[in-house]
Design a protein around this nucleic acid. Structure first.
Lengths: 228, 228
DNA sequence: CATCCAATTTAGCCTAGGCTAACATCGCCT
DNA sequence: AGGCGATGTTAGCCTAGGCTAAATTGGATG
């Protein structure tokens, strides 16, 4: 199933993404760069392959390395934000025009990114009415993302009795994304944390007509805004 | 300007295309396979590169070679027709949804072909209302193309005094395509051949409010249906 | 038949992106 | 201080798709 081959852009996207970890990956919960090993893991390449690319990214001025953590330079961050933005608009194209489910859009969007130039993505955005969120709730403009982060937390960090609204779904794991959508855990859903069982590593939640237990791992991928 | 890198599919498309030459390239005027050198030329690769790929195409059962002309096998023809069909639907997507001009759509369509799976192209066709022609007048379904060929001829082969309607524009040369569109020589245009000057290698034509001379080369890329 | 140009092929090399195996470090913990 | 697992790097090799330079082959023509 040849998991295709990755360009500089894919690595930058991964590094950008990993700069704001949550649980194992992703934004909000705690912050700071992740080692190259996480990048390798995320892109399903081996350590030497990632190592080689890191060397190149540094040589070309996209990252700096103090210790073992890759730090995006201005250039690298701009490039990464461009790629992320394109990715999110393409996801909206896949859902809004092509009729794919959000989870499916995620699977196709990376490959499409290589085919669309920036100019084409701008046209897409125009035709789609300038959407401001990707199907999973992330802001199309990554700079808004960081502002918004302050108001959000992972569901895993909501105390018992807390009420919250799902704003974004972690995208790093396609299977987890499917799992969310299969259960109606989508942006906009209001959810109540009935009980927290850290020993069991799970939370009991209620939303709509459903009551269920969610593992801490899964709850780490649901980013919510607490009800006032 | 790194003219990107070509896959098996691109070579098959070129071979398919060259199987019905007109003037230097393209369908209708005379028929029969073209040597690999033409394929190389069309894809802007060197002869050894094309030669190498021919070897591979033969080994994988896409072509047979008697003499120096590559002959598409059943497998090869099916594959080529699939690629051509996808290409034409993608061109319609680029004009109808993305808002590109026909000439621009041609420039982008090849790169896009790699990003869209067959399933995605089917969806595209559906969303676009199942178009039956590409923007340059070619049938989306290549099998219709060959039937229709019998009713068409190149403008270069229309005798003085002949009236005809432009049905298709040759796509092999992006610059020529631009030239046609810049002058309003588009599918549907009715055109009168006033005079033929073989010595000068040109025809005098009239269409709409325009009267002009067209080189035989350009006229070889305009495929027309003669008025009864 | 000889010649000559076009077409093709061989040989050798290159780049991007991967891989495995083996070695080198880091840093945390007892 | 020593251990040891997680990280990172080196070395060597691979595939796809290109390239140039230098043979070869084929066919049309004088």
């Amino acid at each position: 199933m040849a998991t295709r081959t990755h360009s500089v852009e894919d690595y930058l996207e991964a590094i950008y993404f990993l700069a704001f970890p949550v649980g194992e990956y992703g934004p909000v919960v705690k912050a700071g760069p992740a080692p190259a090993a996480r990048v390798a893991e995320m892109l399903s390449v081996t350590a030497p392959t990632a190592s080689e690319m890191m060397k190149r990214l540094e040589a070309e001025g996209y990252i700096e390395r103090t210790g073992r953590r890759p730090l995006l330079t201005e250039k690298g961050r701009h490039e990464a934000e461009r790629v992320v933005r394109n990715h999110r608009i393409i996801e909206r194209f896949l859902t809004d025009f092509m009729g794919y489910s959000p989870a499916e859009s995620h699977e196709h969007a990376d490959a499409m990114g290589d085919a669309f130039t920036d100019e084409m993505v701008e046209r897409l955005a125009e035709r789609l009415g300038h959407p401001d969120r990707c199907p999973h709730g992330w802001p199309v403009d990554p700079s808004h993302e960081q502002t918004e982060n302050q108001e959000l937390r992972a569901l895993a960090a909501v105390p018992a009795g807390g009420r919250a609204t799902i704003v974004r779904l972690a995208e790093h794991d396609g299977d987890l994304l499917h799992w969310f959508y299969d259960r109606g855990l989508v942006p906009g859903t209001e959810i109540l944390v009935e009980d927290v069982a850290p020993a069991a590593g799970e939370l009991r939640v209620r939303y709509g007509d459903t009551a269920m237990a969610i593992s801490e791992k899964a709850a780490g991928g649901l980013f919510v805004r607490l009800a006032p």
